[in-house]
């Protein structure tokens, strides 16, 4: 049974993450709002419910890992890390500034809580397989979540990583697929058509969970089912999402992949996000 109160709390957290991420991008006048907003609900569920982590000990060996393979949407991750206390909240105002731990794409050597650096696409998904295999070989219970974009799977290394996760029966490897339908130059179907990812992931040996990536109850239910499925099969969450979710002029818009709002747009965004999705 899903706990209604928990769902409500996490939706509130997701709202807070969205507002924080958009504020960061507005203040920096640089960053990627569209994908940050499509990923927000899953990131909230991970950092405020699912991940077994300790912000006071970011490198705790037993911790669950999260690798944001689509590293450009790091504002939403930074928001979660800041609000979980990995660094002072004041740091959230330094995105992309010289000397900041909040680099334009996540850097593990600069920012606590980043399990590995990403930015160049596809690579994080493969790094996460190495982490998951090490956990299995060492007899540890931790799990490794990695979020990949639906444009990101154009990269061949993602498929290499999936084959490898299947070979080594890594049921502690969980790929969250942020299926928002848009990439930089066009829709995912225009750029690389015919990618039925649920079917392909199943063909690659993954257990597949098709969900609405903005429905918190569905996200939590998928996590519950995955936790119970220690069956030697890696996991694939195909999360249907909306790029720019929560801000009307950003939703489903190619223009808002990597652009910062101006003052009027920012104020409108804050008002809409406060109202809730």
């Amino acid at each position: 049974m899903m706990n209604e109160e928990k769902v409500m709390q996490l939706k509130e957290r997701a709202k807070q993450l969205r507002k924080t991420a958009v504020t960061m991008i507005y203040e920096a006048q640089s960053g990627h709002p569209g994908g940050s907003l499509s990923a927000a609900d899953m990131v909230a569920a991970l950092y405020f419910s699912e991940l077994n982590i300790d912000p006071k000990d970011p490198n705790w060996p037993e911790r669950d890992r999260f690798v944001l393979s689509k590293g450009h949407v790091c504002p939403i991750l930074y928001a979660a890390l800041g609000l979980r206390g990995y660094f002072p909240e004041a740091v959230l105002h330094t995105l992309r500034q010289e000397g900041s731990m909040l680099q334009g794409h996540p850097s593990m050597v600069k920012c606590p809580g980043i399990d590995i650096s990403t930015g160049s696409l596809g690579q994080g998904a493969a790094c996460a397989v190495g982490m998951a295999l090490a956990g299995k070989r060492d007899g540890k219970d931790y799990r490794v979540f990695t979020m990949v974009g639906d444009g990101e799977v154009n990269e061949g290394i993602v498929w290499e990583a999936m084959m490898c996760a299947n070979k080594y029966k890594l049921d502690n490897y969980i790929m969250l697929f942020d299926n928002n339908g848009l990439q930089l130059d066009g829709t995912t179907d225009e750029i690389m058509p015919g990618l039925d990812m649920s079917k392909k992931a199943a063909d690659f040996g993954f257990d597949v969970y098709d969900i609405d990536g903005h429905d918190m109850a569905q996200i939590l239910e998928a996590f519950d089912r995955i936790r119970a499925a220690k069956n030697g099969r890696p996991k694939f969450i195909n999360a249907r999402t909306v790029k720019g979710k929560g801000v009307d002029y950003m939703e489903n818009s190619l223009d808002w992949h990597g652009k910062a709002p101006n003052k009027a747009q920012y104020e409108s965004a804050m008002e809409q996000l406060e109202r809730g999705i």
Binding site: A126, A128, G130, A132, G156, E160, M163
Partner: peptide, 17 residues
């Protein structure tokens, strides 16, 4: 397997542990 790109990134993940 014949997947050098994965080999390198995979190894990086191993090294974090």
């Amino acid at each position: 397997g014949i997947a050098e790109q994965n080999a390198a990134a995979f190894a990086a993940g191993l090294a974090t542990t």
